[in-house]
Simulated assay, not measured.
Amino acid sequence: MVLLAGVIVLIGYREWTEEIGYDREWIIQKRQSAIYLAAMDAAAASGGYIVPFSHDIMVAVLNGVPRENIEEIYRVVSRESPVPVAMRVVATNRPGWDRVPIEPGITIDDYDDGGVAALHIDLDMVSNERRRKGFLQPFAEVMRLYIRLVEDALPRGYIPSYLGGDNIILFAPEENIDDALGLVMEAMGDGRYKVGIGVDDNPRAALARAAHALSVIRSARSCRVYVDKRGEETVTCR
């Protein structure tokens, strides 16, 4: 089983930004938000999920998403983008999966995907620390964890995403849950955290299970890790 990614690139994006004058940043940010919103709506409608990287590059997590819906994501982004769009759909266990396509259009490599795991990391006490100390130190702590996962997880074909606040997601193939969780725990060190893990056929369903898993941890208060896997629930206390 593999993680299936759709690497989406806006071609000529930098040139477009330079053509709209100096009073442009608010225009750029507004357009970026519109593109991301359209992409997320299209992906979620068929069970996918969009991870933004640089704003002219997004990665769609596509396990379980039918081919016709993958093509619809490409069409939706193309309609919203001010420049041509390229999209390559590829399994992340292939060398060079993160190479950006350079020609407009969509290419779909041969693949055989499977279930996807979403590891939802929630750092403990960050909200309280923001109220007591301000937001700078807690935000820096979350960003350090996110950068560590970018450096350690992306080369393995796992896809991290910062959700906001003190929440980070790591997507991995279903069969690689233990390896992905090990990366998270190593990155956290002695930090306080909870990890709700959801496993399902597509990213949207896996994320919903991960959110449920976190709610169980918060209720039980005796475990740091909980796995909700297609009706099969496993508690791991640490």
Rank of each mutant, 00 (worst) to 15 (best):
L4Y: 07
V7L: 11
V9K: 12
V9Y: 06
L10C: 05
I11N: 06
E18M: 14
I20E: 12
G21L: 10
K30R: 15
R31V: 04
A34H: 10
I35S: 00
A39M: 03
D41R: 15
A44Y: 03
G48R: 06
I50G: 08
V51W: 02
F53Y: 11
D56G: 07
L62C: 14
L62Q: 09
E68F: 06
E68P: 00
I73L: 14
I73N: 03
Y74R: 01
V76S: 01
V83L: 00
T92H: 08
G105T: 11
A118D: 09
H120D: 05
I121K: 00
I121C: 05
I121D: 02
D122V: 00
D124T: 04
L136C: 04
P138S: 13
A140S: 15
M143P: 02
L145V: 15
I147F: 14
R148T: 13
A153Y: 06
L154S: 09
P155C: 01
G157C: 07
I168F: 03
A172M: 11
A172L: 07
A180G: 13
A180Y: 02
L181M: 11
L181T: 07
G182N: 07
E186I: 07
A187M: 06
G189N: 13
R192K: 04
G196K: 03
V199C: 06
D201M: 14
N202F: 07
A205T: 13
A211G: 10
A211E: 14
S215R: 13
S215P: 02
R221K: 11
E232K: 08
C237E: 12
C237H: 09
